[in-house]
Amino acid sequence: MDAAPAIELRGVSRRYGERWALRDLSVTVPSGQTLVVFGPNGAGKSTLLRLLASLLRPHGGEVTVLGESLPRREWAVRGRIGLLAHDALLYRDLSARENLRFHARLHKQPAARVEELLERTRLTGRADDPVRTLSKGLLQRVAVCRTILHDPPLLLLDEPRANLDPAATALIEPLIGRESGRTRVVTSHDPVGGLAEADLALGLRDGRAALLAPAGEVDVVAVEALYR
């Protein structure tokens, strides 16, 4: 199980109408490693994450996630992926606790797990307020709890530190950072910080891989060039 790569993409393409959002992408991410995806807006980063999360079907190529071929065996990876997208996937009129309990029930997790996570992200004080009253930073912390509620071996994170102050970042780091020990795919606009946490770096431009190399061999300048 550990020997097999967590993610294997071979020649993967995805189209929206006539426009190709991803073209002929081949990436392999070994278990436990971090792939950081750079690229300007619209380069295909979110499409890639949704493909890996089994929310989008590929229009070409082969996608294998956690040893299961998608989309044929997509039900076998459900519940083993944590997706943290721009959309928090939280109901605004419910409290953080109610939202998390709802997700815990969907994933067959005990309510104690919710309390544990609320504790660890220091949300206990605001846990019963409707989510719509929370600040963006607090909301992101709740979303992080939602993402790792079911202890998924694979994390897909879309700019996870976007609205967070340093203290909050430190708070969620053990949960979704490198030290969480999970396989991770992280999108980032920050070349320095992104490369620092990466094992592998992927640069997307117009849906194609413009850059793919072990993070140690990638220069910050090469990443910045993607945005030009």
Binding site: S54, I81, L83, D87, L89, L90, Y91, R92, L106
Partner: peptide, 9 residues
Amino acid sequence: EGGFDAVLL
């Protein structure tokens, strides 16, 4: 509010 994704995941 993303309930579709939540169910699909």
